[in-house]
Simulated assay, not measured.
Amino acid sequence: MGKRHDSIGIKQAIRLEWMQKAANLILAGLDTKAIRQELHEFLAERKGNGSEGERSDQTRTFVVNSLMKIWAAPEQELLPFRDASLAFLQEHPSMALAVHWGMISAVYPFWFNVARQTGRLLALQDQVTQTQIINRLKEQYGDRQTVSRYARFVIRSFVAWGFLKDSKAKGCYEKANLVCITDVKMAILMLESAIMATPESKCSLGLLLNNPAFFPFQLPVMTGDLVSQCSERIDVVRYGLDDEFLTLKFN
């Protein structure tokens, strides 16, 4: 699972409505070739800032490739999670925000890590700057130019999704209102996405529920027993009296 966790990958801002379009095309039964063509046509005059206007073939291709990798053609090990997320999205369209968050986090752990550093900073202060987030990411990924550039795309996506708000100062952001997750199955899908975004493919339940990467959300209190009952893809391993670790089952 190393390649997925080491790569950065997100080369353009990803808007929520584009994610929904990709998911809808799969739910409509289109094959991957048709989905790719439909996405190219859909994005031909849609820019990352939400405005209409012609975009270059290169930037459009970056976005289409990302959307295909997230929803239409994820890695083999992610297919069961993708299928479960699609089924949940179809049954609960009002939960689209959380479903798409989980899917993009699993496919692109860089997204999850940008969220984690953002959440850590927001736990300490009311506002966070782009520079602060990027500096923390460089500690993890190294001082690569691509880290700065691609992190900006993710941060702008957070704003577009409604998770951050622009403050009066340029490059400075405030936390938006929390999205309350009350459906346990949705919450467990989000935990699963977080485990997939973690190189070790395991994490303690307590740390997961309090992971700063979930800063846009309020998750319900859950026990390991509840997770075991509701998920076929997560194992719960107990250490001592209180420690519960969640690990992924791989076929």
Rank of each mutant, 00 (worst) to 15 (best):
Asp242Arg: 15
Trp101Gln: 06
Ser56Met: 11
Pro93Gln: 05
Phe88Arg: 09
Phe158Cys: 07
Glu139Arg: 09
Asp31Val: 01
Ser56Ile: 07
Gln37Tyr: 07
Phe163Gly: 03
Ala96Pro: 01
Asn177Gln: 14
Ala106Glu: 04
Tyr141Phe: 10
Gln117Ser: 09
Thr146Ala: 13
Arg156Lys: 14
Val63Ser: 10
Gln12Asn: 13
Leu246Asn: 02
Gln76Leu: 11
Leu86Ser: 02
Pro80Phe: 06
Leu219His: 00
Ser193Gly: 14
Ile133Glu: 00
Lys47Ser: 12
Arg4Trp: 08
Ser105Gly: 06
Ser231Leu: 02
Asn210His: 13
Leu79Trp: 03
Gly142Leu: 00
Phe163Tyr: 09
Ala34Met: 05
Thr131Val: 12
Pro199Leu: 06
Met103Gly: 03
Val159Ser: 13
Asp57Cys: 12
Ala73His: 11
Gly50Lys: 04
Gln37Glu: 13
Asp31Thr: 03
Val221Pro: 04
Trp101Arg: 09
Asp31Leu: 04
Phe163Leu: 08
Ser201Leu: 11
Ile234Ser: 06
Gly206Pro: 00
Pro80Tyr: 06
Asp183Trp: 00
Thr131Pro: 05
Thr131Glu: 14
Ala176Met: 08
Trp101Leu: 07
Ile14Gly: 00
Val237Thr: 11
Thr61Ala: 15
Ser56Asp: 06
Ile155Arg: 08
Arg4Ile: 10
Arg156Gln: 12
Glu17Ser: 10
Ala22Thr: 02
Val128Phe: 04
Ala187His: 02
Val147Asp: 09
